[in-house]
Amino acid sequence: NDSALSAARAAGQIGEQADGYLGFVPGATISADLRGRVEQNNIRRRALYTQRATQRSASVNEMAAAVACEVFQGRIAVGERYRNEGGQWRQRTASNPVEVPGFCTD
């Protein structure tokens, strides 16, 4: 995917959120360019969720949450930061795995 985003992910500037979108890690310095790229990514995600939710007569947030489950269960690399269901920013390390949101079914 977008190399700038994966670099920012690795650098701990941004991370996946339980609501299915990318978020800015508090305290990180975010350039206008990175901000634009994250917003672009999230617009595209929201458009995907909206279209798919409409097809499934589900709500957009439900669709977003479903995708978040998949992402939390497999797409957060060691060292990356993420925002858990409670809204706290965590970092996946070798010792503490990703806190998968409660609403996810495994």
Partner: peptide, 14 residues
């Protein structure tokens, strides 16, 4: 069950 039903769609979207 709404969430469960969307799991497959999520994988597809990914």
């Amino acid at each position: 069950e709404v969430i469960v039903r969307l799991e497959r769609d999520a994988e597809e979207l990914l």
